[in-house]
């Protein structure tokens, strides 16, 4: 036999309040489970790297600049 629930649907805020999670930790957890974090994870899996100012860079674009000419000779 099933129980029919008639209580309020507990939101994340309710759960945090019931379990005694602090406000700052709650905000951190919301960021962790938020859409931005998910997008970052999906892009990371696809081989993209997040750059500054929220722009996405290709992994190849973030390679170190190749040494050329005199610098290269000196390096060798």
């Amino acid at each position: 036999m099933s129980v029919i629930l008639d209580s309020q649907f507990a939101t994340a805020e309710d759960t945090a309040a019931a379990l005694g999670v602090s406000d700052s930790r709650f905000k951190r957890l919301m960021r962790l489970a938020g859409p931005k974090a998910i997008a970052r994870r999906v892009l990371a899996a696809a081989g993209y790297k997040t750059g500054t100012n929220g722009k996405f860079k290709l992994k190849t674009a973030s390679r170190k600049k190749q040494t050329r000419g005199k610098t290269k000779k000196a390096a060798h």
């Binding site: 649907f9 507990a10 939101t11 994340a12 309710d14 759960t15 945090a16 379990l19 005694g20 999670v21 930790r25 709650f26 951190r28 957890l29 919301m30 962790l32 489970a33």
Partner: peptide, 25 residues
């Protein structure tokens, strides 16, 4: 972040519950 090795720690449990609840909502 909670410095725990398993989810059977008080803080990890609370955090997991909050994340699950956020997703449920």
């Amino acid at each position: 972040e909670s410095g725990a090795k398993s989810p059977y720690k008080a803080r990890a449990f609370r955090d997991i519950c909050v994340v699950a609840s956020a997703w449920a909502d």
